[in-house]
């Protein structure tokens, strides 16, 4: 461990830089190949990777199996769309405001939900997410069952988000920054305290750590990052839809995290890439792609208990 961190360019870091460089030039490559459609697809991959990563922080680092992450992911999308309908077009003001509102929401939901544990925590987070889903689809200003379309993308002066390349790079940048941030966080005092809580909550309480507050903070951080992913998603899709708030969306994100590797730094990214990639690839060759995805997921559960990341990387 010490030796690896001492060498300036360790193997992992080199790999990471190579992947990042490839990701940066990808839009130009796709445009050159005349495959512009895939820029949108790649952007979607990055957005879902960010959302799954945010959930992985809550599940893998905080040890809280939250089954209502769609409330924050889809909620972010809806809030951005609502604020834009209200005339707040600038992403510089709109997105932070959205994240702030979602943070408050997550703080309230988390504070109540953390009274329960285990399976009951799973179900109460689901309950809150479903409440938000049904409330939103009843709101006329949120477009009801039809969702809320955007006339244009957020403005991010001096950048033009209307350009698909720019939106892609923004998603890539935000994902990279978030991953870096979460890595720093997990190596900080706070991260070690979270790891301690995950191993033995009672002991950490006895040591005087404010366990509930630390877990709540983790829950809120995850929610805020999910809202950021939602802000990107609504710009990519051109609308906020009820499906983004429904429990199947929460289930999808959870499946991505478990598939990729719970608690692994790249678990969320890997899971999102593989699941969405599989869906896209299988859809080209068969009508029944879900059958094969189901079989693949089963195989992963039975033969790769620590997720895909556990197959490829030794440590987290």
């Amino acid at each position: 461990m010490m030796r690896a961190s001492r060498s300036v360019l360790s193997g992992t870091l080199l790999g990471e830089l190579a992947l990042l460089s490839f990701a940066i030039i990808l839009p130009w490559l796709l445009t050159a190949l005349g495959e512009d459609y895939y820029i949108g697809f790649a952007t979607r991959l990055l957005i879902y990777a960010l959302a799954a990563t945010s959930l992985n922080f809550v599940v893998g680092y905080g040890g809280m199996v939250a089954f209502g992450h769609a409330a924050f992911f889809g909620g972010g999308a809806y809030l951005v769309a609502l604020l834009m309908t209200g005339g707040l077009l600038s992403a510089w003001a709109n997105w932070p405001l959205t994240m702030l509102i979602v943070a408050l929401l997550a703080w309230a939901i988390g504070a109540i939900s953390l009274r329960t544990r285990g399976v009951y925590f799973i179900m109460i987070t689901l309950a809150f997410a479903q409440m938000i889903y049904y409330s939103v689809i009843s709101l006329k200003i949120a477009g009801g069952d039809d969702g809320l379309p955007l006339d244009q993308r957020s403005s991010l002066f001096p950048f033009d988000l209307g350009n698909d390349h720019i939106l892609y790079w923004l998603a890539l940048g935000l994902l990279a920054i978030s991953l870096l941030l979460l890595k720093r966080l997990s190596h900080s005092r706070y991260g070690h305290a979270l790891a301690g809580i995950r191993q033995n909550e009672t002991r950490m309480e006895a040591l005087g750590y404010p366990v509930q507050q630390l877990k709540l903070a983790c829950f809120v951080i995850g929610a805020v990052l999910a809202a950021l992913a939602g802000a990107l998603l609504v710009n990519q899709n051109g609308m906020a839809g009820p499906g983004q708030l429904y429990w199947t969306q929460s289930g999808m994100l959870l499946v991505m995290v478990i598939l990729g590797g719970v608690g692994h730094r790249y678990g969320g990214v890997l899971g999102a890439f593989v699941l969405l990639g599989l869906e896209e690839a299988l859809a080209q060759v068969t009508e029944h792609s879900h059958l094969y995805i189901g079989l693949i997921l089963l195989a992963v559960v039975l033969y790769a208990p620590r997720g895909l990341a556990g197959l490829f990387f030794k440590s987290r």
Binding site: V59, I258, L291, L297, V300, V301
Partner: peptide
Amino acid sequence: LYQRDHLSQVLATFALILIANELARM
């Protein structure tokens, strides 16, 4: 799956939902 953690069970049974729905559709 009994001896596995809840998350593995969620993933496996979610996979079963996908398979069952697709089979019914087929």
